[in-house]
């Protein structure tokens, strides 16, 4: 029983990480209707930036998280500039969300993600990076019958804080207002004087900042920081977005938690090498049986 509880806690913190990554996907999809295939690499960049900071300046964890937030935001804006803006020749709704735009940016973000991953690999090598032992977030904490590590608490706490911050940004700031406006109706937003290009850049900044923080948190939690680390959380976050109904942030967060918990619990029944299959199975089942996502929502053909 204790083992189940322990796996549940691990699953919750895993799910929180997927949720942070999924939010970036969801925000960008809401605004542009495109999937950003380079989102996983933002996560990797966050982890590497954090590790570099730790090894060169050894600042406190909170400061690292803030700096990684900024690095992620910058990387997101750069990504938007390189892979998305060149293909946006007009800013009306039809061409913003057109099929040609969708397919071109799909490939361009994929291409940039390869370049980013390979560049990191050239600089740091493809193997796991050595994370100093004292930085690892795995000091055991006994909570009644369950033993968890402080990393679980850090991840749960930071993620929850960031979700609230995101809610505040989206609901109570002008930037958030313009993001919601563009994702609701890009042409209408333009008519009332919102700068669409700027809003899109902001969306990438906010989404990527959260993805980058997820990267460093997981890197310190598992002690596994390597150039290809963004691939699997990227896919799982994407699955969470599809399950949640594509443009619903709460839906994506809840589904990310479901995926995280199911993955952790699946290790009770099968060897952990098979746990990646859980998310893919969720994806296929969702696409076939709940094409609108588990939480419904109106959508065109899928």
């Amino acid at each position: 029983m204790d083992y189940y509880l322990q796996q549940l806690v691990i699953g919750l913190s895993l799910g929180m990480v997927y949720a942070l990554v999924a939010i970036g996907f969801t925000l960008i999809f809401g605004v542009l209707n495109v999937v950003n295939f380079a989102h996983g690499e933002i996560y990797t960049i966050g982890a590497f930036a954090g590790l570099l900071l730790f090894t060169s300046f050894a600042p406190p964890l909170a400061a690292v998280i803030l700096i990684v937030l900024a690095v992620g935001a910058l990387a997101g804006v750069g990504l938007e500039r390189l892979a998305f803006r060149p293909f946006r020749r007009f800013t009306d709704e039809a061409s913003l969300k057109s099929r040609a735009m969708r397919e071109a940016t799909l490939m361009s973000s994929l291409a940039l993600s390869i370049v980013a991953r390979e560049a990191i690999e050239l600089i740091f090598g493809s193997q796991f990076q050595a994370v100093p032992f004292k930085l690892l977030l795995n000091n055991p904490i006994k909570l009644g019958p369950v033993t968890i590590v402080d990393g679980d608490l850090v991840i749960l706490g930071t993620s929850a804080l960031m979700l609230f911050a995101l809610q505040y940004v989206l609901k109570h700031t002008r930037v958030g207002l313009s993001i919601r406006a563009v994702s609701n109706n890009a042409l209408g937003a333009r008519y009332v004087g919102i700068d669409t290009n700027r809003t899109i850049a902001w969306t990438f900044a906010v989404g990527s900042a959260m993805g980058a923080v997820a990267g460093i948190l997981v890197g310190l939690y598992y002690g596994a920081i390597f150039p290809a680390m963004g691939f699997s959380p990227g896919i799982k976050a994407f699955v969470a977005m599809v399950m949640g109904g594509l443009s619903s942030i709460p839906g994506a967060v809840v589904c990310a938690m479901i995926i995280g918990v199911s993955e952790a619990l699946s290790t009770i029944f099968v060897a952990s090498v098979w746990q990646d299959l859980v998310a893919y199975a969720f994806l296929i089942v969702t696409l076939i049986f709940f094409p609108r996502g588990i939480f419904g929502g109106v959508r065109e053909r899928v």
Binding site: A83, M107, S108, L110, A111, L112, S113, I114, V115, E118, A119, L122
Partner: peptide, 8 residues
């Protein structure tokens, strides 16, 4: 990396 750049 060249494959990625060529694709882009």
């Amino acid at each position: 990396i060249i494959i990625g750049l060529v694709l882009f």
